[in-house]
Simulated scan of single mutants.
Amino acid sequence: MSNQDWSEPSGPHQPPGPLPDGSIPVYASHPLPGTPGGGPPLPQVGWGSEFGGGQHHHRQHIGPPPKRSTNDLLVSLLLLGGVAALLVIAALALRDGGSAAVAPATGPALTAPTAPPDDSTGTPASGQSSQDSEKIVTADAFYATGAQRGVGCRQPQVALNSQATVQRYYTNLVGCLNKAWAPKVQAGQDKFAAPRVIFWSGTTQSPCAGGSPVSFYCGASQTLYLKYSDDIKLWNRSADSANRAFARMWATYTVAHEFSHHLQQLTGILPAANRLEYEAPNRQAELELSRRVELQASCLGTAFMGANKSTYGITGSDLTIYRRYVEAQTGDENNRGGPRDHGARTSHQYWTERGFNTLNSTNCNTFTASASKVS
């Protein structure tokens, strides 16, 4: 699908198209966050605290990795030191006045998960071979559960300018995701459990890492850690409708992506991918597996968005902003100096379009795709 396949909104707030010189349109004296070539780039979904191995992942690796040579160990230590320096810089840049509030979500839609399966921590099942893991990530029954159906959820009409309103927005969205995905997980012969949800700002702790500058998912606790302060900053950066649409669509995309890591956890895809990463023969193969995991999460997240776009209100200006700035501008290019572990902009656009347009989990099987599709 090309970028011209969606309709432009009408009215006085219609966002302009690309300028004649190809540059990005400017709103309120600066480009929207995440756009190339100007303004502070928006942190990528889960591009933050590294959960194991010094990598830019938002999932946990537990258990002993395979033995590595002395040279591999030296390279890993150097990479880890570089990442640590980047994290200090990112943490300082994203501080919001020292707030460290951690607010667990409540309500029937956000109940704690039932007793987790043996591999729920992210640890590959004991005795699981590489062949077993390969079969899970490429041919799990979850892929054959058919197209996603709309569940009639509606986007709350709230301003994302306070902790209370952002939590209300997210609580509703996670409830919608639970309702949409539970039948699919069960149809794939797996047990569905709603994720825990923790809202936070400043700093937070999890079983997966000592801290993170952005929202993330932790498989060890089956918890979504959602940083509400970033959404408030996006909402308040400009009062115009384009920036407000961006804030809503980024929030929706972020939660749908992180929730998709929970789906990968429940179906066994994430633990199996962790095993394959541990046994990867080199850094390049390891990063490619990471990109397959992340691009799949983006694809599954947008399958939900596409299935519910009418009732949820991903239409008009919101759809335009989503297509032009969230879908088209997300990628490792924004993670300046970081590893290529989530996927290039072209790859993200390819997989998010597949999810949004086809609504089908089978079309989100990144583990059977060619290397060029997960660059």
Results as ranks from 00 to 15, higher is better:
251 A>G: 08
308 N>M: 08
279 E>G: 11
285 A>G: 08
269 I>K: 03
266 L>R: 09
268 G>S: 05
295 L>V: 07
276 L>H: 06
252 T>C: 00
308 N>W: 06
280 A>K: 10
300 L>A: 04
286 E>R: 15
289 L>P: 02
278 Y>L: 12
307 A>S: 14
304 F>N: 01
288 E>H: 04
279 E>N: 15
284 Q>R: 13
276 L>P: 03
253 Y>G: 04
278 Y>Q: 15
271 P>W: 09
276 L>C: 08
253 Y>I: 00
289 L>H: 05
278 Y>G: 14
270 L>E: 11
268 G>I: 01
268 G>P: 04
265 Q>I: 03
306 G>E: 02
309 K>M: 06
256 A>I: 02
298 S>C: 09
277 E>T: 14
311 T>H: 07
294 E>H: 03
272 A>M: 10
302 T>H: 02
290 S>M: 13
295 L>S: 01
253 Y>L: 01
281 P>Q: 12
297 A>L: 06
304 F>T: 01
290 S>W: 02
280 A>N: 11
271 P>S: 11
290 S>P: 00
290 S>D: 10
277 E>N: 09
302 T>P: 02
291 R>N: 04
265 Q>C: 10
301 G>M: 05
299 C>T: 05
252 T>S: 05
271 P>E: 11
304 F>L: 07
290 S>Y: 00
311 T>C: 03
309 K>Q: 13
